[in-house]
Design a protein around this nucleic acid. Structure first.
Lengths: 225, 225
DNA sequence: CTTGACACAGAACAGGCGTTCGAGTATCAT
DNA sequence: ATGATACTCGAACGCCTGTTCTGTGTCAAG
């Protein structure tokens, strides 16, 4: 007969310890000691704390550096933690030619990459195969995208009206960054800059959406006159 | 007579220690001990390491929890990885005061914070007391900054021509982000959009520079019609 | 009832670690 | 020279901390 006393995964004390480590870490910027855990969790013996810590480690909730004072940390993907490495595939000139590798960007020969904290990403974009492009030119200036900005894109083959997309016009051998609108006899690629005319693409013409813009990053470490 | 031997800010050893703490932290997920620092930086005495640590603390490069094992951390550096944790001090919008005063920066009562990969930061801004503001409303749209954008700022009281600054016009009770130009009889706050007129501020009028913009981040997880 | 896994307490141990103190050296200004 | 300042060393002190060992009580299975 299997019997389960109260070993439902995490017991009350496991939970309490976990929460204490988290709050302690947030307050003190470093993990608590075994004795501090004991005090705040009403455990009078350090060996008992160690006993639970071992279990929490085996369960994968924490990591431990034995022998090292306060050598524990939450493995949880908490507010801290990881970044996404987004490859910068090249430069996109929102007006003219294009040296973008549109096909398979699985070949991670990207010369450069940017790191984005996942906490900054919209939730539904996490874990995606995002890629980045550096904008060259001013054609998106009224879309509040400036020369030199880095745009993070999500691979996509379709888009809804009003979304900003990177499109590949194979007959013109050109990639641009535009607002996307579907119309009765084709597509309209609208630059945000009103002084520039939209690009009208007939249904018969090739138009390949490469991705939607999910993020824009601008480093302002230069003069803008 | 004041004399300065080679105390040009940080000496070679200060730098070395700083770098070691950083790399050790990245590798071990926790800070090094005094003795470990000594070994890797060719310092035979723990007291000497302590001596330098004190200086680094006074210089604001690290924080220390005395008495606590490995109780040191690089300021502005998050416990893990190459990210900076930048506190979001509030929102910036026209007509409302902004809670910028980074006077007691230690009181980390910031409701929120963003993590920025250091690799994205301009080199000279690393390790600074940066802060972030979330833009609310379209009042900054003329600076190519949109509603919802997050601007990373560096505290500053002065600015050079052409830099984008957050200024507080106390008589108008207004905060804006503009390009800053100093002129003979005052200051010119130039919107990025050329169709909009600059704001001219006489020397007699109050103008308080709160910080320089070093980065702009926009999450595009919504439609832009 | 016996057994044994489980949860816990308490004490003792040994090593890690920050701190402190005394002392030595080099450079520079007076 | 002399003193001040900056820097370095080595050792000792003592607390902090993780570890380990022994012992106790509970509870369910055999």
């Amino acid at each position: 007969m299997m019997m389960v006393r109260k070993s439902k995964g995490l017991g009350e004390r496991h939970q309490k310890i976990l929460e204490f480590i988290e709050s302690y870490q947030r307050e003190h910027k470093h993990p608590p000691s075994i004795r501090e855990i004991g005090e705040h969790c009403d455990i009078s013996s350090t060996s008992v704390v160690n006993y639970y810590l071992d279990q929490l480690e085996k369960a994968g909730h924490i990591e431990r550096d034995r022998k090292i004072s306060r050598g524990m940390r939450l493995t949880n993907a908490s507010p801290f933690g990881d970044m996404m490495r987004v490859p910068v595939l090249g430069v996109i000139q929102a007006g003219e030619p294009i040296p973008i590798p549109p096909s398979d960007f699985n070949s991670f020969t990207a010369d450069d990459s940017v790191e984005i904290a996942t906490s900054l990403m919209p939730a539904r974009e996490k874990g995606r195969d995002l890629f980045a492009l550096q904008v060259q030119g001013d054609s998106m200036i009224d879309a509040m995208i400036n020369d030199g900005d880095i745009v993070i894109l999500k691979p996509a083959q379709e888009a809804r009206n009003g979304e900003m997309v990177a499109v590949w016009l194979s007959d013109k051998n050109e990639t641009t960054l535009k607002y996307f609108y579907k119309e009765k006899d084709g597509y309209r690629l609208q630059p945000a800059n009103p002084t520039m005319k939209p690009i009208l693409v007939k249904k018969s013409e090739p138009l390949e959406i490469k991705g939607k813009v999910v993020m824009v990053i601008r480093k302002v470490d230069r003069y803008m006159a």
